[in-house]
Amino acid sequence: MKSVFALSLVLIMFSCDSTKSTNDKKSSEANSLNEKEEMSRNISSVTLESGCLPAGECAFEVIPNTKMDFKIDTAEMLYPEFVDDVQTNTIKFSYNEDTDKELMDGHYREEIYFEVKNGTKEMDLQDMELKDVNFLYGRFCYCKGSAGYFKVDKGNLTMKNGKLTIEFANGQVPQKLGKITASYK
């Protein structure tokens, strides 16, 4: 009799737990669906169409749920710190130039960063308006005094009908890239 009672108790415990798991699973699936719907309204990928120089490689990256917080290091140079922000995605473009692997300081890289608020599918910014998206240019090389990150306030950033056009001049250090076109979805 005791064994039947114990067996019944165990079965009841497992049946309650399975109901809870089913409800948790449904809730998890609903949250996952909401996240997918939210992501579909946001930029999920950017594909380069033109603007990369033949001497290097270019790539776009969407850094989801982040924004930039600007910091100053001990050499008084600007740099971005990426912080969580569920309302913003950061777009990164990088150009890495092919270099001689024998040279220790033979690298050359340019980067562009800007932020896009979730739900934004179109924008047309010019000059000082680039500050609205924290437009940032970075140059990294063995080029004393002319490397680091720089805020940009001269140029155009247009996103419309799935096309992205970036045209800018940082005005502080030499740059190789000036105009980039891409598609986004």
Rank of each mutant, 00 (worst) to 15 (best):
C52F: 08
A169M: 08
K160A: 07
T66K: 05
V133F: 07
D17S: 15
I72T: 13
R139C: 02
F70N: 00
C16Q: 12
P64L: 07
T99N: 15
I43A: 06
G162S: 04
G106W: 09
I12Y: 14
L177Y: 00
G148M: 00
K92S: 02
P64H: 05
T99I: 13
Q172M: 11
N42H: 11
A182H: 03
T19A: 13
M68R: 02
Y184W: 07
V83I: 11
M123E: 09
R139T: 00
K131I: 04
V46S: 02
K179H: 13
N96A: 10
N134C: 12
V173K: 02
G51Q: 05
V116N: 00
S45F: 11
L136V: 07
T90Y: 01
L157E: 02
T165M: 11
Y108A: 06
E102R: 14
K131G: 04
V46M: 05
K176P: 06
M13E: 14
A59E: 14
I112A: 04
T19E: 14
S94A: 11
E61S: 06
K20N: 11
Y149M: 04
M128E: 12
V10I: 15
E110F: 03
S8N: 09
F70Q: 02
Y184P: 02
L11M: 07
I12S: 15
K185W: 07
L9W: 15
H107K: 10
A182L: 02
G171F: 01
K20S: 12
Y113N: 05
V86D: 03
